[in-house]
């Protein structure tokens, strides 16, 4: 579901050096295939009609597969329009590892999960933390450092972040 926040999110996410690709459930497999570099690993996607079927993504990776992966694909629980951030949540499937070790992180977010601002994000997080898993990352663009005398993208975390925005979810 596209809202006024969606456009704002796309704009701010691009500003923080994330690549954002709007897509739909129907086009998802093709969009994902374009977004990943292989080998690619993924954790389960909770969006109806969007899965790894027909894509090169290994949906149940082992530790060894993760070590080899060039791309990790995970679902984003929410996105924050003001900041261009995605909310990554660990469900026990290893989302934290997949969003951290491979050079590229592809995050799949439903447009209906885009919230306008930080107060709304914390309201949402409050509800999530009350019910279920309580580990979340507000991730904004690729990992970065200025510690080596200039800004470098891609430090311990991913160098590239791609957000696939499911406009009909």
């Amino acid at each position: 579901m596209v809202t006024s926040h969606t456009d704002a999110f796309v704009e701010s996410a691009r500003r923080v050096d994330a690549v954002v690709t709007p897509t739909t459930a129907d086009e998802f497999a093709a969009t994902l295939e374009d977004a990943v570099t292989e080998p690619a690993v993924g954790t389960p996607l909770p969006f109806e009609g969007a899965s790894y079927d027909g894509t090169p993504v290994d949906g149940a990776p082992t530790g060894a597969a993760l070590a080899e992966a060039a791309t990790g694909v995970t679902a984003g629980a929410a996105a924050i329009a003001d900041y261009g951030s995605v909310v990554l949540q660990e469900t026990g499937a290893g989302e934290e590892l997949l969003g951290l070790y491979p050079d590229r992180h592809v995050v799949v977010v439903a447009a209906s999960d885009v919230v306008p601002d930080m107060p709304a994000a914390f309201e949402e997080l409050g509800e999530r933390f009350a019910e279920g898993p309580r580990d979340a990352i507000l991730a904004t663009g690729p990992s970065a450092t200025a510690d080596m005398g200039a800004v470098v993208k891609g430090v311990h975390g991913p160098r590239d972040v791609h957000v696939l925005l499911l406009e009909d979810r």
């Binding site: 530790g63 060894a64 309580r134």
Partner: peptide
């Protein structure tokens, strides 16, 4: 905002990876 704001409620729910395990 910095690239990562981690909100962790340890012990975290992330599986402990064994990179040798295939």
């Amino acid at each position: 905002i910095t690239a990562y704001v981690s909100l962790l409620t340890p012990p975290v729910g992330t599986p402990v990876p064994d990179f040798e395990d295939d």
